[in-house]
């Protein structure tokens, strides 16, 4: 049914795909590997750096060198502690817009400024149409949207849409700034609808999961659960398999 509708309204996009019977649209997304995020915030600062210099103008910074600095960020790294001492784990948890496949923030927008791009599933805000009513932020269960207090329009992660399509960048640079910045490779980027992509494989083979599945938002970004205990066990059994062991 859905495939038939897509074929009807997709205006022939399906033709180029190898499997016309099963023709998912593209959905760009991040997959966050919680095994290797070390909580360094390099993705936070590189995100801010790239997105404050874009065509949309600087991202708001209030009192950046003062006692109470605040401002607009598209990406945060949070830290959680799981378990009971002494069996506790510290988990660093990056969070940005999840580019939901059923984004609740989009239909509530009264002006149409919020939209989900048909070509690659990125959820974006047209800053020229936004009236700053904040309703989309209320409608996002994840707190992914932040108003820019200076421009008074809603802002959010764009997956660095201006990098992805910039042909003046080297092919390897046409990915989100956070992905480029991560020193441990905790952030995978790609088309989750392409079963052969790195991100789809990671989700499939390593138990990738969405946040707050209870609301049916179907986040495109997914997280890879920690397998710390298993990794430690393996190293103890066979020290030679650890390339770091001398």
């Amino acid at each position: 049914m859905i495939a038939a509708l897509k074929a009807l309204f997709g205006r022939g996009e399906a033709v180029a795909v190898a499997e016309p019977s099963n023709t998912p649209a593209r959905q760009l997304a991040l997959v966050i590997d919680l095994n290797v995020c070390v909580g360094c915030h390099a993705c936070v600062t590189s995100c801010k750096e790239w997105n404050t210099g874009g065509a949309a103008g600087p991202l708001f910074d209030d009192n950046p060198y003062g006692a109470d600095p605040t401002g607009t960020f598209f990406n945060r790294v949070q830290t959680y502690e799981a378990g009971v001492f002494p069996n506790t784990e510290t988990i660093h948890f990056p969070k940005s817009c999840l580019h939901c496949e059923e984004p609740p923030c989009v239909p509530v927008c009264p002006t149409g400024a919020s939209y989900k791009r048909k070509s690659d599933g990125i959820v974006l805000v047209d800053y020229d149409k936004c009236i700053g009513c904040k309703y989309c932020a209320w409608a996002c269960p994840y707190g992914a949207r932040e108003i820019d207090e200076a421009r008074q329009v809603m802002t959010k992660c764009t997956l660095c849409v201006d990098r992805l399509e910039d042909s003046s960048l080297a092919a390897d640079d046409r990915k989100p700034a956070c992905v480029k910045a991560c020193p441990t490779g905790a952030r995978l980027f790609g088309d989750v609808k392409d079963p052969d992509s790195e991100v789809a494989r990671a989700i499939r083979e390593r138990g990738g999961y969405p946040l707050m599945p209870e609301w049916g938002t179907r986040p495109a970004n997914q997280y890879l659960p920690r397998r710390v205990v298993a990794a430690v066990d393996r190293r103890e059994e066979d020290p030679a398999s650890d390339p770091g062991a001398e």
Binding site: T70, T72, R76, Q78, T79, Y80, E81, T90, E146
Partner: peptide, 13 residues
Amino acid sequence: LVQTSMGMSAGSF
């Protein structure tokens, strides 16, 4: 499971 840091010190939107 408890949060130990929300990722910023002085609040946000």
